[in-house]
Amino acid sequence: MGGWEGKVDIHRIFVLQPTRPQTFFGVGALARLDGILAGLAAAGRDKVLLVTDTVAYRASGAWDTVRPMLERHVAWEHFDGVRPNPTYANCEAAAALGRELGATAVLAIGGGSALDTAKTAAVLLVHPRKKASDFYEKGAPVTGALPLVAVNTSHGTGSEVGAFAVAQSDGEEKPAIRSPHLYPVQTIEDPALTVSLPVKLTVSTAMDALCHALEAATAVTASPYSITLAREAVRLVAAFLPTAIVQPGNLAARYWLMYASAIAGMSFDLGLLHVTHALEHAMSALNADIPHGEGLGILLPAVLREIYPAAPEVLADILAPIAPGLAGRPGEAETAVARVREWLAAIGQPATMGAYFTGVDVPALTRMAMKSSLAKMLLPLAPIRVDCGVVERIFQHSL
């Protein structure tokens, strides 16, 4: 049997099931929120903590539709203090507002940062004696969370279909937690909410989805299911991102990018992630100004150079829409990297991290990446052994 299928361990048992949230997907899906809020109220969950950043919930057009729904069905308080790469303090401030309200449910409108903040607040609200650091750093078990409804305004996060949350400590640490209680109970995926994304965010969120797919397909935890989802996600990003860049209002392009992001999120929820995300989290922990997806895109070629020889069959297969003509041989890593770089340049993805770091920063980035709890979780899942030398080489090649 040729291709990556021949390398699948048919004796390893994996979970073949969709991820948890009931997800309403398609243009106009936001209208379903009215029934969701009515259902929460009927179930006695009529006090809702709304979590957003300061911009996306309005710029996306969601707010004009959502506010009348909230006023019709529930009592609510609005936390709009979400920041990119949210901190423990952000999450605890959201939870404090929810506690004042006596919140019985949480509604998040936004991308990954809003969802991470809302997930953490939902956990804190049922663990009143705990701090965010107890879960993120001390291993406290997540034994429950308030029901979370997610309205996604991005086509990159994946958090709306997954069981992970990420937050940043007061220092340089940016760990993650994972629990079935972190799945939203219901998710709205309405592509119309993404048409206001500026070009830079259109590209960077698509890079996030792309890297979710590539990592989930090459992790040691990958399965035929996660690889199949990843392959389709990459195909759709390659097919529709160029259109979304030049025609931001093209709803069909936004539809397929959001769908690609959702299935890439499902892929990594089951197949998990590894090098690119572990290293980018070190970058954004040390410099919060770097957009998550942009950082991933900067690192991607250097990561591919390292991992391609260990997973050439699957990478040649799923990268075909971006880097056609690969045969799936270990020795073609440089060809694969060159073709991916050409594609990244064509869509306007920055090629280096020079706008954020210099060579002087590489030792600190390497130390941060190697010592972080997230790296300790993810790096063992890579298809290669990742040590300090590999990490330093990736950062050097990304300058």
Rank of each mutant, 00 (worst) to 15 (best):
G2T: 13
E5Q: 13
K7G: 13
K7M: 06
R12F: 07
V15T: 14
R20G: 12
Q22F: 12
L30D: 03
D34F: 01
D34I: 08
I36Y: 03
L49R: 06
V51I: 14
V55F: 14
R58P: 02
R58Y: 07
A59Y: 06
V66I: 15
V74S: 01
E77T: 12
P84V: 11
T87D: 03
A93W: 02
A93R: 14
R99G: 10
E100Q: 14
G102I: 11
A103E: 06
V106P: 06
V106L: 08
A108L: 06
G112K: 08
A114P: 10
A114M: 04
A121S: 07
V123W: 02
L124P: 01
V126E: 12
V126G: 01
P128R: 08
K131I: 02
D134M: 04
A140Q: 07
T143R: 14
L146G: 05
A163H: 14
K174T: 07
P175D: 05
I177Y: 08
L182P: 10
P198T: 11
L201Q: 14
T202P: 01
V203Y: 02
M207Y: 09
A209N: 03
A213V: 13
A219S: 15
A222Y: 08
S223C: 11
S226T: 15
I227E: 05
T228A: 14
A230Y: 08
A233Q: 06
V237I: 15
A239W: 00
P242N: 13
T243K: 14
A253Y: 00
W256D: 01
M258Y: 01
A260P: 09
A262N: 10
A262T: 15
I263H: 05
A264W: 09
G271N: 09
L272I: 10
E280F: 00
A282Q: 03
A282K: 07
M283C: 14
N287S: 07
I290Q: 14
H292R: 13
E294D: 00
P309E: 03
P309H: 03
A311T: 12
L315E: 01
I318D: 10
L319E: 00
I322S: 09
L326Y: 11
R329Y: 04
E334N: 12
T335E: 13
T335P: 00
E342V: 13
A345M: 08
I347Y: 05
Q349W: 00
M353V: 07
M353H: 06
Y356M: 09
V360K: 09
D361Y: 05
P363H: 08
A369C: 04
M370D: 06
M377G: 01
L378A: 11
L378Y: 04
P383V: 13
